[in-house]
Design a binder for these strands. Structure first.
Lengths: 204, 204
DNA sequence: CTAAAAGTGGACTAATCAGTCCAGTCATAG
DNA sequence: CTATGACTGGACTGATTAGTCCACTTTTAG
């Protein structure tokens, strides 16, 4: 009732405050999970107050929805920058290397920010829908990349690019989960290599 | 200090009480996650009292360790019963079907009980180690199955069965995560099919 | 200028949580 | 039988939590 609905006015200052809250919440959730992130911690990290938070969000669940959306934009932006210029299998393997390197840089901690949200929120309808959309957009990015490879190589063999994108994403998520558990990028490398070999076999 | 250490006496009644607590906690954690499972809820579900819980466990973290171990035994027992009698690729595909069917029966909810624990506990050293051991045992089960297939088929081609087990497990985990998000077994089926095709290519 | 609305600060509440404590019951070894 | 220790019931505490409320300041529209 006290929360911002669609179309409600928002001054520049208001927008900035809201953004500060979402940014701080996203960072805390990525580091500690939804359940282990208290609103008080968000307020402290964003230098705001209770009344501000409840001015812009109906409740914690509402804030979590905003966090999912922001995290989605962050993750997709990272991959989009790599996948946009994709036009060969070698480029896909460079993407693989970048993903592995990113995981290595954080010592394999945290896993995928979106994947982690799934196991915590997948039983709540609205968050689950949002995450499903995020993965769909991620797959679309991969499909676009595959198509670019196909176009460049000339051989437009008939195969389901969407299915390929799904298995690549599954390999990525599964690989990251095992990497997070073992604190080694080995499983991630093997899983992505398998998936990319599959792409090569289907595409070429 | 008040908890049960290794070697401490445990009567039959005590063992039963401890088991009841772990069983209830495991079920609640599987359904709602560690952070969303309160000790009071565990007590209510197991029909025990605070003093009993703290008689057998040092604190909540200690109970969580027991939950990880019990959940590991449950999951591995399920897969062991399928993988033990493995001696052909057809058998491996039947295992795939069983995994898919199991996911379908719960409407893809919950994902893998061990995988879900990872994203919630992977940043705590001891739980993470335990989960890493669980996955290592799971991979060993797969390796044993692959070896049985290799022996039966006669062709003992030289390939790294451990790597194969890792990618199959990664495909399973990633597939389950996407299945949980989309509420469809499609991603799980595709990911497992890809991994098993890989096994076939490497093994035969 | 001025009034209405947007935005803010922080005290407060009620519920829930992990963990403590102690008085007691039960089982069993000697 | 009896004493020791395993086992149990549940009240209690202090900390933390999400969420409420109201007085106040700042911005904006007319």
């Amino acid at each position: 009732m006290a929360s911002i609905e669609i179309g409600q006015p928002l001054t520049a200052r208001g927008k900035a405050t809201r953004a500060r809250i979402v940014e701080a919440a996203t960072e805390l959730v990525r580091a500690h999970g939804v359940a282990n992130t208290s609103l008080d911690a968000v307020l402290a990290a964003s230098d705001t107050s209770k009344s501000q938070l409840y001015h812009y969000f109906a409740d914690k669940d509402d804030l979590v929805l905003a966090v999912i959306q922001r995290q989605t934009e962050c993750v997709l932006a990272t991959h989009e920058s790599h996948l946009r210029k994709l036009h060969s299998l070698a480029g896909l393997r460079r993407w693989r290397d970048a993903v592995v390197e990113l995981s290595r840089q954080t010592d394999c901690a945290g896993g995928c920010p979106l994947g982690s949200l799934v196991s915590e929120l997948a039983e709540s309808p609205r968050p689950r829908e949002l995450l499903a959309e995020s993965f769909a957009r991620w797959e679309a990015l991969l499909v676009a990349g595959f198509r670019a490879i196909q176009v460049r190589s000339g051989t437009s063999r008939d195969c389901d690019l969407t299915e390929l994108a799904t298995v690549v994403l599954a390999a990525l998520q599964g690989g990251l989960l095992l990497a997070q558990t073992t604190r080694s990028t080995r499983a991630l490398e093997l899983a992505l290599d398998m998936a990319i070999d599959r792409v090569e076999a289907q595409l070429a």
